[in-house]
Amino acid sequence: MNDLFNFRRFVIALKRLFFEKGIKLLASLCLVFSIIAMLLQYIAMINPREYSNTREIVLAFSLVLGPILYVWIISDEHASESKSIAYLLTPFSVLERWLLHVVVGLSAYFSLMISGYKIIDIWIVSGIHDRISSSQTHLQKAYVEVLQELTAFSFEPIFYIPLFLGIIISLTIYIGTVYFKKNVVFYSLITLTVVFLIFFGIHFFVAELIFGEELVFEPRSVFPFGSLVIKPQNTLYRTYNLEPIWTLKKRVFIVFVPIVAMISGIYYRRLKEKQL
C-alpha cells in the first residue's frame, strides 16, 4: 500500500468531503454570492455612477473575507475529541489530507467565487446598459458616456493582493483548526492580525532607522514592500513618494508566494504532528 499518495484513497477522501459537508459548503457559497449580488444590485439601482468603484471593493472583500466560512466548514475536523479521533484514524495519508484542504478546497472556492462574481457582474452591467438606453433622455451626456464604457469585469493585477490575502487567511484558519477547538475563526484571525501588525511595525521601524525624521507617518509608509513617503529636511512643504523598482505584480508574487508556501508547509507539518 502506498502510504504517501494513493489516487483511489484520494477519490474516497473527496467523496467523504462531498457526502459529509457538500450541502454546507454549497450553502456557504450561496450565502457569499447572495450578499455580493444584493450589494451590487443595490448600488446599481441607487447610484449606478458608483458601480464601477463599488464592484472593485466588493470583489476585494469577497476574496479576502468570503472564504472564511467555507474554509471553516472544510477544516472543522477537531471540534470535539470524538470527531478528531474519527478524522485522525481514517486511513488517509497526510499528503492526501493536505491536498484535499489546501489545493482542492481553496482552488474550488476561488475559481467558483471568481466565476460566480463575473456572472453577477455581467448580469448587473447588462442591466445598467438596458436602463441607460431606455432612459437616456433623463441623464446627462457625460454620465451616460461613463456608464456606456462600463464593461464586465476583467481582473487587474491589483486583485492578486486580495486573492493572496484570502488564501493566507484561509490557510491561517486551517492551521487554527489544528490548534484551537473552539472559536477557531476568531482566534486564527486575531493571531494573523498580530503577525501582520508585527511585520508592519518591523517595516516601519527599519524605514525610520534609515530615514529618521524625514519619514512621514501615513498608511502608505506602513505596508511592507510598498511605497514610502518622505519629507526631506531641506524642503518645507514638499513630500516625496519612494516607489520600489519592481512592478506591483512582481512585488505581489515575490512577497506573497513564499508566504503562502510557508503557511501551507506549516499546515502540512501540523497535520502530520497533530495529536488529540
Binding site: M1, D3, N6, R9, L88, L89, T90, P91, F92, S93, V94, E96
Partner: peptide, 8 residues
C-alpha cells in the same frame, strides 16, 4: 506515523 497501511 499514522501511515494509511497501519490505520487500515
Amino acid at each position: 506515523e499514522r501511515k494509511p497501511s497501519f490505520l487500515a
